[in-house]
Amino acid sequence: MGHIRLTGVKKCFGDVMVIPPLDLEIEDGEFVVFVGPSGCGKSTLLRLIAGLEDVTEGVVEIDGIEATSLPPAKRRLAMVFQSYALYPHMSVRKNIAFPMKMARIPQDEQERRITDAARVLNLTDYLDRRPGQLSGGQRQRVAIGRAIVREPSAFLFDEPLSNLDAALRVGMRLEISELHKRLATTMVYVTHDQVEAMTMADQIVVLHAGRIEQVGSPLELYREPSNLFVAGFIGSPKMNLIAGPVAAKYNAHTIGIRPEHIDVSANSGLWSGTIGVSEHLGSDTFFRVNIHGLDEPLTVRTDGEIGLRYGDTIHLTPNPDHLHRFDAQAARLA
């Protein structure tokens, strides 16, 4: 169980409207990621679902029950915070037991669930330590343990990995994905990192200035971004966006082409230019190419062993099958 439906949900802080009325449906068992730049309202939206903020207007339903004015404690949701928010005065065991203590679950059942969670999360040796004696990754695992023992109808994650270092982040990302596969419980995950969004999500909700720009699977967003914002936000490196006369040739206000969808040749092509900065990653090479007649340099991806370098002339041809066209209102043209 873990079906969440928002209808006409709106949030204002004083006179400032941070989330204009929006509708969103999250199916049971889905892994949904809210992604967007800082200040886009993604955390606020999560907190509205959690009940930590009151909605200004609209209806929040959880498992078919109206939860708009239910306190967080009554919503049967578990949340993992960016700061972990562990109870510093309690041992790891007591931290994990806390939600069960609040739910008045019998002692032996508590013990069983703590043992299970600790085994899954590799915390067995740390149960009697205080949070202050743990590393960042371990603290995050305790926070996750605290969330899973109460068997909630959905998990809410608020940028849980952003305090971890890069290597740990990749590991935890996999662990959370595995957890989702095993528990098959609805997870709502907030991040500003589009790599996390692409790798973990069943459904991505792209937010911008409190509005939902697009909802779709990672590949849908990659293949068919519905507007310029999503086109520029999803994908790494970013999609090249070209406006003006070049776009007009394609009957569009702006055209977009991803770095990986441009054919590179030393001899001939549609556009020609000179190579600026190049980044060699081994498997791939990224060139910043200054195209004659374009203001902005284009980014292109080629294989790692290409023999071109700074200052060389290069010819580029966009793959027409992967060319995205947008109108003057930034919406996708069919």
Binding site: A73, S83, Y87, F98, M102, L156
Partner: peptide
Amino acid sequence: PGEILEAARMDGASLREEVIYVLLPMAI
């Protein structure tokens, strides 16, 4: 930190339980 009290709320603590089990021990 407010997030710790919010965590208690998410964990199902009532206001009274939040104050007794989380706020007061931390403020000792």
